[in-house]
């Protein structure tokens, strides 16, 4: 299936690692150019080198040091990417991590930081790419919204709260931007084998002296497929949503969670 992504330009904050980097790899394979950012220069440099080697073309990868919680850094990143590539077609927002805490141990400042990254950072990034997308009368935005949005738990208070806000923002912006042909959708991952999950599994293997299969079982026992998903499996769904093959899809959410989500209409 031709996704029509050749020559498109994607901005992927958080594209230096994990889900974001996997999305970059997939978009590069489809012929797009990518702009990534991270707080640390060495993370940006390492990811740019890796992605450039994959693309085989230094002209399609751009890295920039920016913190998505910094109100000045975000528009500066977008404008640097626009200057470099001359357009912005796609934004895939995957910045921010998963944070577990309960009402007893969650400090307000930690919740604030989580919201700053995943809600205010997401909002700022979308505002920053809008002028280019409106001028082109075409834009494709995908927010990666962890499944804690739909599955709150006592120990996932920060992610549950934050991700639900992201889901509401995704739908509201989809309504607001549709007539300008800017599509906004969410992809909801759960049980994807990120670097974070791999680290946790490795720790479990060491701590309990068990094999990988046993150690990872604790992570996927609640999903239907009984395995972790790969980063590539998440990236494939993102690539479909930002493609020319999904031009009538907006305000939608797709779960990539091995069947974990329990709501029949979701």
């Amino acid at each position: 299936m031709d996704l029509g992504l050749g020559g498109r330009v994607a901005i992927v904050p958080g594209g230096t690692r994990g889900l974001g980097k996997a999305v970059c790899r997939r978009l590069l394979q489809e012929g797009a150019a990518v702009a990534i950012c991270s707080r640390k220069q060495e993370h940006v440099d390492a990811a740019v080198a890796e992605l450039t080697a994959l693309a085989g073309d230094a002209g399609r990868v751009f890295g920039h040091v920016a913190d998505v919680t910094d109100p000045e850094a975000v528009p500066a990143f977008a404008s640097a990417a626009h200057q470099r590539f001359g357009r912005i077609d796609i934004l895939v927002f995957s910045a921010g991590t998963h944070r577990r805490a309960t009402v007893y141990d969650l400090k307000p400042e930690d919740l604030q930081h989580h919201l700053d990254e995943k809600v205010f950072g997401n909002f700022a990034m979308i505002r920053a790419v809008l002028p280019a997308m409106r001028a082109q009368k075409d834009g494709r935005i995908v927010n990666i919204v962890g499944q804690a949005a739909r599955h709150p738990h006592s120990d996932r208070l920060p992610s549950g709260t934050t991700n639900a806000a992201q889901a509401a923002m995704t739908k509201s912006l989809a309504d607001a931007l549709a007539r300008q042909n800017i599509r906004v959708n969410a992809v909801c991952p759960q049980y994807i084998e990120t670097e974070l999950a791999s680290t946790l599994i490795a720790k479990e293997m060491r701590d309990r002296g068990v094999d990988r299969e046993t150690a990872s079982a604790g992570f996927w026992r609640a999903n239907v497929l009984k395995r972790m998903g790969t980063l590539e499996e998440l990236a494939d769904t993102v690539a479909f949503l930002v493609s020319d093959r999904a031009t009538f899809i907006t305000g939608s959410t797709i779960s990539v969670d091995g069947g974990y989500h329990r709501y029949p209409f979701g």
């Binding site: 889901a167 994807i192 790969t230 899809i249 939608s252």
Partner: peptide, 23 residues
């Protein structure tokens, strides 16, 4: 497709943004 091998029990709206649920 093989590109959707971790999706099950879910759905995709292809409706121009018509339906109103966020979860």
């Amino acid at each position: 497709s093989e590109r959707a091998s971790f999706l099950t029990g879910t759905n995709i709206d292809v409706d121009g943004g018509y339906q109103r649920m966020i979860f």
